[in-house]
Design a protein around this nucleic acid. Structure first.
Length: 588
RNA sequence: GGACCUGUGGUGCAGCCUGGAGUGCACGCCGCCCUGUCAAGGCGGAGGUCGCGGGUUCAAAUCCCGUCAGGUCCGCCA
């Protein structure tokens, strides 16, 4: 790890109370009288004549030796004064960085006493996350969290440096923004001076950064907090942090180059290894090969197409436009009940059903459908999916989109390793569709957002068959997680009107929601494009964490509560009155 | 809104399926002993609303229903 380590900043970290950090002590310090400060991690007392104290600070642990007894408990905060000396022969501790030395003849001053901690602060003691979050300030003292937060800081530093180097200007945008209903649910902030009116917290600085382009900033970036009042997940919190950027007079290739530079720099700083150039694939290719728009390329296995094989098949279950197969290595051991569960999942995703074939040792297929198959079909199932004895082959026959999506979900569920495991695999996914289906009123739904520029080859399609049109939108994917997305924006009012029309947004509607943006665009908007990606997710993967909560100092639970502060909580009636707010009791 | 998993001294678990005294393990905590340990060691000790409520039963940590909390996922996240 090349985060700012204690060696390089050791001098800076000396203070009026300490000379250096615990974890920085080395044989070169032998003979020096030093003062260190920290928490009592462990103590080993040997009667009234000898005691060892493992003292911990942000840098690690050093052993302090007291010739006498001590009156210390775990997590007491102390200042230790003593002399650095080599450890006696045979007592070196290779497992810690300071293990060749110790601080001898120690005098210990207690700076603060401490209650016994509710859980062990060593990394190896496993603690339920609920307990960790209630005492997050203690959890943060643990080496693992110290490391995660410092890697995160190093990533932020690398991102800023990369953006700065590429000529981007860091601009802060408002946290109190105007409601623009569309997309994610917004957090509302009541206005004290204007009763009945609300600000909202930005779900992203999207419109602000486009206005900065009109404002001639040319290249903008921000490490921006975004807030979305949507349900939480392992990779989603109410508030999260993005590297948000936008640039003028650029194409999507330019933007992808800017982002790649920043992400690869961050990866190098966090992991010590600079990944190679990030490959690209189209959305259609991603869906067809992997069944998702965020493929996990660590998993080698892809969907295979059996449509031709079953084109004129007698098997009624396979009479569909598209027949796709997925091989599950060693899946022949799946029990009937597990296969039933998978079938249920496939159905819940919209499939008619899920056909399964267990490949037996003799190469024959074990499946309820086997007796309906022709020999050529049996052979095709095995050969085209490259199945071996002991594998399982899953088949879905449906419309293309549904068939690949169902198998894509099963591929992710059954074959993906934990997100932080193995060699990181980045991929750009491009040429997303402009629209993703239609809403209840029959209007197309923006796949990205309504300011996304159509693909240059599909301007005509926008008028004739908009649902088939592609956009200039692109996602960055890492290990099956969507890191972020961006697009070329529409900068011409006439084209924007056309897209609004396609979306079924009336001119009055558009004017009311985004009037300030459309107004700005009438004053000379440069062609521009941008991107934003989640720093929490990126750092989680770098640190090997399987949830972003591990890289956030004070995260919320899945139900959106803070177990330490008890937020959200009620506020006083007088505070409500001042805000002009009356609450409605929850219906029972 | 929905599905599934988890909840047992301070912490982590076992016990639950197949009901029979809150029993057990490890760590931590408290006391005493101990001059080279490092997850120190030895001896002794304290510590429990088995998440909560209801039901079944002679009897419930264990079975059933409900509920709360945490987690994973679906929906949702332009």
């Amino acid at each position: 790890m090349t985060t700012s380590n204690e060696q390089t900043v050791a001098g800076v970290l000396a203070t009026s109370m300490r000379d250096l950090l615990c974890g920085a002590l080395r044989p070169e310090h032998v003979g020096q009288q030093v003062r260190v400060c920290g928490w009592v991690a462990r103590r080993r007392e040997h009667g009234e004549h000898l005691a060892f104290i493992d003292l911990r600070d942000r840098s690690g642990i050093v052993q302090c030796v007291v010739d006498g007894s001590v009156d210390l408990r775990s997590e007491y905060v102390v200042q230790v004064t003593g002399t650095v000396r080599p450890r006696p022969e045979g007592t070196l501790n290779e497992t810690i960085a300071t293990g060749a030395v110790e601080i001898g003849d120690c005098k210990v001053e207690v700076l603060a006493a401490a209650e016994p901690p509710p859980f062990g602060l060593e990394d190896r003691s496993e603690v339920d996350e609920q307990i960790r979050l209630r005492y997050r300030y203690l959890d943060l003292r643990r080496p693992r969290m110290q490391r995660n937060l410092r890697i995160r800081a190093a990533v932020n530093r690398a991102l800023r440096a990369a953006m700065d180097r590429q000529g981007f200007v860091e601009v802060e945008t408002p946290i109190l923004w105007a409601p623009t209903p569309e997309g994610a649910r917004e957090f509302a902030v009541p206005s004290r001076l204007h009763h009945g009116s609300f600000y909202v917290l930005p779900q992203s600085p999207q419109l602000a950064k486009q206005l900065l382009m009109v404002g001639g900033i040319d290249r903008y970036y921000q490490i921006a907090r975004c807030m979305r009042d949507e349900d939480l997940r392992a990779d989603r919190q109410f508030e999260f942090t993005q590297l948000d950027l936008e640039a003028s007079f650029v194409t999507q290739d330019d933007v992808m180059a800017f982002v790649s530079e920043a992400v690869l720099d961050a990866a190098e700083v966090a992991t010590g290894v600079r990944p190679g150039a990030i490959p690209r694939m189209t959305w259609h290719e991603a869906m067809d090969r992997f069944g998702v728009d965020k493929p996990d390329l660590r998993v080698e296995i892809e969907l295979t197409d059996l449509s031709e094989t079953f084109q004129d098949s007698e098997v009624r279950a396979f009479s569909a436009p598209v027949v796709k197969a997925l091989r599950i290595p060693d899946g022949a051991t799946f029990t009937r009940s597990k296969l039933d569960t998978l079938t249920e999942k496939a159905k819940s995703l919209g499939a008619q059903g899920l056909a399964w074939f267990r490949v037996q040792d003799d190469g024959s297929l074990d499946s309820p459908l086997d007796r309906f198959l022709a020999d050529t079909e049996r052979a095709a199932i095995v050969e085209r999916s490259h199945a071996q004895a002991g594998d399982l082959v899953l088949i879905v026959a449906d419309e293309w989109r549904r068939a690949v999506e169902v198998l894509g979900a099963l591929r992710a569920q059954l074959l993906s390793p934990p997100v932080g495991e193995g060699e990181p695999r980045y991929v750009w996914v491009m040429d997303f569709p402009m629209f993703d289906g239609v809403d209840a009123d029959g209007n197309p739904i923006s796949a990205h957002h309504p300011f996304t520029m159509p693909h240059p080859d599909d301007f005509e399609l926008m008028k004739t068959d908009p649902l088939k049109a592609r956009s200039q939108a692109y996602d960055l994917v890492l290990n099956g997680w969507e890191l972020g997305s961006g697009s070329v924006r529409i900068h011409r009012p006439d084209l924007q009107s056309e897209v609004f029309r396609a979306l079924g947004i009336s001119e009055e509607d558009a004017e009311q929601r985004f009037g300030f943006l459309l107004g700005a665009f009438r004053h000379g908007a440069p062609p521009h494009a941008g991107f934003a990606f989640g720093i929490d997710r990126l750092v989680a993967i770098f640190t090997g964490a399987d949830t972003i909560r591990e890289v956030i100092a004070f995260p919320k639970t899945q139900s959106g509560t803070d177990l330490m502060t008890q937020a959200p909580s009620t506020i006083s009636n007088s505070a409500l009155l001042e805000l002009g707010i009356r609450t409605i009791p929850k219906e029972s």
